[in-house]
């Protein structure tokens, strides 16, 4: 049994919050570089150039890439052979978010209640998804989610008879509706299967997979490639002003489901698809 003090968790989460909001991951940088090469629209090229310049300024001057530094979504994989000491893990994660957002000059975008709407002033609480796994390590993936794109996300409860064509229509319809609101070029996370809530979590998890890395399942890989091509024919383009780059990537995750259902969730993310992973 390996012992881990929860203060180590708070410090790790703090560092992750600050880093992820100032430095985009390599897979997203590659996505920008590829887009610059393929874009044919003049206005599209100009906007991609400004977005790259924005990334450079963010890193050099330590200004968040986007002012919407998001609500902190955390996937926590806890090894079953870890013994946590010094306090409660959920409190420790939230303490990390608090320190990261307060000490890191990040925007506090969380309100205490969806109707009363009083700002909590430290961006807590986070949305945390726990998983118990084998081993004696703890792995955190943090994906701060901005709401310009989150608001354009959708869940569809399709029928089994709708099949893969139904899934394709759902994805395309969500992306079309999102249009310029979701700050394209987007990354599209799709969850297929499970239950109402499971497909939504899968879609969120899909956004944390490296852009450009495809599913191991043959038909899912085909779906990802076909959807990316179709989405990029929509001419929404960078900032919604036209062009070939409406999406950088389509990542699809699947899960077994019920004989009567075909749930599909489409979680849309902007071009600032922040994700970072650390292991303790």
């Amino acid at each position: 049994m390996r012992e881990v003090n929860v203060d180590k968790i708070s410090e790790t989460i703090k560092e992750m919050c600050i880093s992820v909001n100032h430095f985009l991951s390599d897979d997203m940088k590659n996505a920008y570089n590829n887009a610059m090469k393929t874009e044919t629209s003049e206005i599209g090229k100009k906007i991609l150039g400004q977005l790259k310049e924005n990334l450079q300024i963010a890193g050099e001057d330590m200004i968040p890439i986007c002012q919407d530094t998001g609500m902190a979504v955390i996937f926590a994989e806890i090894g079953q052979d870890v013994h946590l000491t010094g306090g409660n893990i959920t409190d420790a994660i939230n303490e990390g978010v608090r320190r990261g957002y307060v000490d890191g000059y990040l925007r506090k975008s969380v309100v205490n209640d969806p109707i009363i709407r009083k700002n909590t002033k430290d961006n807590t609480p986070a949305v945390i998804h726990y998983n118990i796994v084998e081993g004696d390590k703890i792995k955190f993936t943090l994906a701060p989610k901005g709401f310009g794109s989150e608001n354009m996300s959708k869940v569809y409860m399709l029928k089994p008879a709708d099949g893969i064509e139904g899934v394709k229509n759902a994805i395309l319809s969500a992306v079309k509706d999102a249009g310029p609101n979701a700050c394209p070029p987007m990354v599209i996370g799709v969850g297929i299967g499970g239950t109402f809530e499971k497909c939504a979590i899968l879609a969120k998890k899909a956004l944390t997979r490296e852009a450009g890395k495809h599913s191991d399942i043959g038909y899912v890989e085909e779906l990802e490639k076909e959807m990316l091509e179709k989405i990029n024919e929509l001419d929404i383009g960078p900032a919604g002003l036209g062009g070939k780059n409406t999406a950088f990537a389509v990542n699809v995750e699947t899960y077994p489901t019920h004989i009567a259902g075909l749930p599909v969730a489409v979680n849309i993310c902007c071009h600032v698809n922040r994700h970072i992973t650390r292991e303790i």
């Binding site: 906007i47 924005n54 990334l55 300024i57 963010a58 200004i63 986007c66 310029p180 900032a239």
Partner: peptide, 12 residues
């Protein structure tokens, strides 16, 4: 429209 997600650049 100003460019969404270019907050560091626009701050200048």
């Amino acid at each position: 429209a100003s460019i969404g997600g270019a907050g560091a650049l626009l701050s200048k």
